[in-house]
């Protein structure tokens, strides 16, 4: 892995939020991480540890306070079409556009001809299992369907990488399991690089090639990473190898949960 150049490089990244009261909050300090092209990386951490902060900086939504972030060797300065984002909630979908209209939005903004973008949009609509729902508007779709639209919208733009912030957190257990399977399949088929945020260890093991665990905040950074080399059959909660990885990841995060709970009081 070290031989292939990293697609995403975070180097000593810090983020300081200025508060209105004047006291600054250091959310992330000296965070470093390399994600090679094609890797599915899951970032795991306790609530409020700074996962979204890291993702927002990679997406270019927020500037780093210090340190550098580069994607494909280019420093990140603003959001761009090479990094597709899937948000936690569904408020990023465009209610006035149909499912298809949402999926082809990026292609339309980038001036792709109508026939071509519709063909692509339909392809990705099918890929996320929503064939025949093209004319429906977000208000007419279930939570799981809306997340699929978000994923298809990001994929249709064919970005170099996907940034996903707890995309399945609001779904019920069945839908979530469904979506995890499908995302895994799509990523295998398209070979996308993914930075996936979750606080669910099971989800991370099901999806990831590598899992990174963050310290509890403030001034959080990566505590350690765990490579997940399981086969699809081994990524079952009941499998011995699954539980072995679980124990390893849990060992990393356990103390952080305790610290984070103590700080909350």
């Amino acid at each position: 892995m070290s031989s292939t150049p990293a697609l995403v490089e975070l180097n000593g990244v810090s983020k300081v939020y200025r508060s209105l009261q004047g006291s600054d909050y250091v959310a992330v300090r000296d965070f470093s991480l390399d994600i090679p092209a094609g890797e599915f990386f899951c970032l795991l951490g306790t609530s409020g540890c700074g996962k979204t902060t890291v993702l927002n900086m990679v997406a270019g939504f927020e500037a780093t306070s210090s340190g550098t972030i580069a994607v494909a060797g280019k420093p990140v300065t603003r959001p761009d079409a090479d990094r597709g984002v899937v948000f936690q909630g569904d408020d990023s979908l465009y209610g006035w556009l149909s499912a298809l209209g949402n999926i082809e939005f990026g292609l339309r903004m980038r001036g792709i001809a109508k026939a071509e973008r519709e063909r692509k949009a339909r392809h990705y609509l099918e890929l996320v299992g929503l064939k025949g729902q093209d004319h429906k508007h977000p208000a007419e779709l279930s939570g799981g369907m809306k997340q699929r639209i978000q994923i298809a919208r990001a994929l249709a733009n064919e970005p170099q990488m996907l940034l996903m912030d707890e995309p399945f957190a609001a779904l019920d257990a069945h839908t979530r399991a469904d979506m995890q399977r499908e995302l895994k399949r799509i990523c295998r088929e398209t070979g996308r690089t993914v930075l996936f945020i979750t606080h669910d260890i099971d989800e991370a093991i099901i999806l990831a090639d590598r899992i990174g665990v963050m310290h509890a905040g403030p001034a959080s950074k990566l505590k350690g990473t765990v490579a997940v080399t399981l086969t699809p059959e081994e990524r079952e909660r009941t499998h011995d190898k699954f539980t072995a990885v679980y124990r390893e990841v849990h060992g990393l995060i356990r103390d952080e949960v305790a610290i984070s709970l103590k700080r909350a009081h």
Binding site: A59, G84, D91, S92, L93, R110, R153
Partner: peptide, 14 residues
């Protein structure tokens, strides 16, 4: 919703 705007930017909209 700010995420609507962020999503558009990340999809390549100026």
């Amino acid at each position: 919703a700010p995420n609507k705007i962020r999503a558009a930017r990340a999809l390549g909209a100026g």
